[in-house]
């Protein structure tokens, strides 16, 4: 297996068909969670038997946002923070396309925050995968809106004094009709949630904790094992979470499908109905 070339591997792992194998190796550092997210994503695409010609993967700027370049689809690597605004144009112009955006915590929750909450409010049929590493990876470890208070970043050398966002709460409050959280440690769940998110009609928001050992891990002296152990111990399946006494919830997060509402109408469908109505007059 070790010597097996990736093209041969494709026979055993048919989901690799969703990758542009000639664009590998990818840019991510050893130990980075982003590659795990990509693998889960293509497995989900494969399980859903998505037509690659009708699939568009859109991103902003950051390490996470380099992901679309490796996917064999209609891929769009845009400007920092704007993935969802570009994706809104793509989806509304051609609602036949399955549109997935991949984004980082800086990309989505800082510079792109406005596009994010408004895409959620419109409930447009886009699946948003936020690859949260609690830091700006690409630019060298600056603090992001999800950097926990007290954590060290290059722009918070004495520990961040800012409170951080709970992105799932925010997405839900903004109107996303499907909200989930998981981590790259919970790999099977990750695939499952991406599949469910894509199938859901409306805006699906999935936060995936995806560690950055190079910046977040190093600055905070967590080590690779520490980073992944943290995912194992601090992220609690929603059923167990609901039974957890309040005093045990501090520093921990629920994972799984946190919220969904299938009754809300999707944006592009509403628009098509409007066109239909006007054409009858």
């Amino acid at each position: 297996m070790a010597n097996m070339n990736i093209y041969e591997l494709k026979e055993k792992k048919p989901y690799l068909d969703y990758l542009r194998l000639d664009k590998l190796p990818h840019i991510w550092c050893p130990g980075c969670g982003h590659g795990i997210v990509m693998k889960a994503l293509i497995e989900a695409f494969y399980n859903l038997k998505l037509d690659k010609n009708k699939l568009s993967v859109v991103s902003g700027i950051g390490c996470s946002s380099r992901l679309p370049g490796y996917i064999d689809a209609n891929t769009l690597h845009t400007t920092h923070g704007r993935a969802l605004a570009f994706a809104t144009g793509v989806k509304l112009a051609n609602p036949e396309l399955t549109v997935v955006t991949v984004t980082g915590d800086g990309d989505c929750a800082a510079i792109g925050g406005n596009h994010w909450i408004h895409a959620a409010r419109r409930n447009i049929d886009i699946t948003v995968i936020l690859m949260n590493n609690n830091i700006y990876g690409m630019t060298g470890g600056q603090a992001s809106p999800t950097t926990p208070e007290g954590a060290i970043a290059t722009t918070a050398p004495y520990g961040s004094i800012e409170p951080n966002f709970d992105t799932c709460e925010l997405a839900k409050a903004a109107g996303a009709s499907f909200v989930a959280r998981t981590t790259v440690y919970h790999y099977k769940q990750l695939i499952d949630l991406i599949e469910k998110g894509i199938k859901h009609k409306g805006l699906s928001f999935i936060e995936v904790i995806s560690p950055c050992p190079i910046h977040y891990g190093r600055k905070n002296k967590l080590g690779l094992k520490g980073l992944y152990d943290y995912l194992k111990t601090n992220f609690i399946p929603i059923k167990a979470w609901d039974k957890l006494p309040e005093e045990k919830k501090a520093g921990k997060f629920p994972i799984g499908l946190l919220y969904h509402d299938d009754s809300r109408e999707e944006y592009c469908e509403k628009y098509e109905k409007l066109i239909e109505k006007l054409s009858q007059n």
Binding site: R82, A85, T88, V90, K91, L92, A93, H115, S279
Partner: peptide, 24 residues
């Protein structure tokens, strides 16, 4: 049969217009 969208700002408007153009 065309689409109009009022975006959240001009940055998003420019982005959506480009996205739609790429979609044809």
């Amino acid at each position: 049969g065309g689409k109009f969208i009022q975006m959240e700002d001009e940055i998003g408007s420019m982005a959506a217009a480009i996205g739609a153009s790429l979609a044809g």
